[in-house]
Design a protein around this nucleic acid. Sequence first.
RNA 1: GGUCUCGUGGCCGAGUGGCUAGGCAGUGGUCUGCAAAACCAUCUACAACGGUUCGAAUCCGUUCGAGACCUCCA
Length: 494
Amino acid sequence: MESKLVVYNTLTRKKEAFKPIDREVIGMYVCGPTVYGNAHLGHAKSYVSFDLIYRYLVHVFPKVKYVQNITDVGHLTDDADEGDDKIAKQSRLEKIDPMAVVERYMYNYFRDMDALNVRRADIYPRPSGHIPEQIEIIENLINKGFAYKVNGSVYFDVAKYDETFDYGKLSGRSVEEMMEGAANRVLAGQSEKKNGFDFALWKKADSSHLMQWNSPWGKGFPGWHIECTVMSQKYLGDNFDIHGGGLENQFPHHECEIAQAEAHTGKPFANYWLHNNMVTINGQKMGKSLGNGIFCAELFTGDNFQLERAYSPMTIRFFILQSHYRSTLDFSNEALNAASKGFDRLQKGLDRINDLKVSNKSTVDISSLKESLYHAMNDDFNSPIAISKLFDSLKMIAAIEGGNETISKVDLVEFKALFEVFFFSILGLQVENNEVVSNEITDELMQLILDYRKAAKTEKNWAVADQIRDRLKELNISIKDGKDGADWSFEKKN
RNA sequence: GGUCUCGUGGCCGAGUGGCUAGGCAGUGGUCUGCAAAACCAUCUACAACGGUUCGAAUCCGUUCGAGACCUCCA
């Protein structure tokens, strides 16, 4: 299929035709988590969004090389002072090694993302494993005059960079504006820097600092922007296709990445910058200080004061995909319940397609359905529209079931394939049947019970028939009477 | 204070200069012994005020409101 993919590029603030550098291999780098805590709803939105993007690119292009960092070092709790990084802080809290913190939360992250059916990236590089590479680039930046050393730390000289490059092009800022802005703000602890907006490439560490490495400037640790520059370029080349991340990282993190990379190589960095939007909870920002954060694991178990019940991973995923990745997503129990029911109905479409009867000719139009689905995804990965088209196709299924429309064998094959490709491969949804264990014995037992109930019904003994149904319901088994007898299934809990 | 984004019906959430988004909930039906499921039909919109236009919820301006970033955060 010819790609007419259009993506919203933060760099230009408009939708652009996506033109890969190399049609055979697309390079994509997405800022990953700093693993010092459990994965939360924000992570879910972010990485499900980029998973959708990744899956669609994989669907359209021959090969996609997907790199996502797992940050295990270097992010200070406060860039301005001499404080710990977040991982070191957590390691003191938990009284375990910093790298044990990293291991614990990295696996927590993978566990939750796996549950959400987020496909793994090809490479998950970690900054602690790329210290020599980071030092190398910092040295080059010093040699080129874009960085300066102060007391064992190294800072990036933003004003110098801005003379030949354009600092602020991604976030729509200018150095002049930031000068003015800085005048209105009292910034503490930045006496080492030439300017307040300069940022650390390497920070000197004192002996109490848990994570530190040798460098040409003494013992220290890398700054919190350099890792992404180094690791993206190492695995994808100096200039690559897509760089993604959360909107909140647009400035300063991504801006600094660009500055470092382009100062280092003199070449453009990523061609397309994609940013996903944030989660709000009942209209409010989700944040630690507000105390309204929800971890993924809590969503799956319902164990959080803001949750009325547990929501399955696929409900969460479907909920996220029902809004556009660049929109904020408002979380509430009501919205989650709506997503849960909607997803359930969509999921049932898979079976209903299999049961459709074919006719000699079609009165339905599969090719226009196909076109509308691809059109939606080609328009900056518009999953909500794609999902709405799948719901529309449910109406078509109902019409065929009811005999008001017909479908040919060829069209049915095409329709089934189309529905399944979008459901499973592109949207990355999975069937959740919650079937405890359906085996021969349960099947036989249920048949036995249903036979007795059928006998009761034949005698119009409704009391017994209803009692059987009610008692089974207490066991989470639901009975549905149809024209061809009764069906039973384990009830979906989520 | 600076930069930027957004305000859609009961809830969530797309889109757009003129044609039903979709989901959930509600209401009325079909089916059913009843129920559930399913299906059909249907009610609530485009923050406010100006302007441009044959026509704007969609473009422009103002006001009000919300949010993001400027400090760690997906």
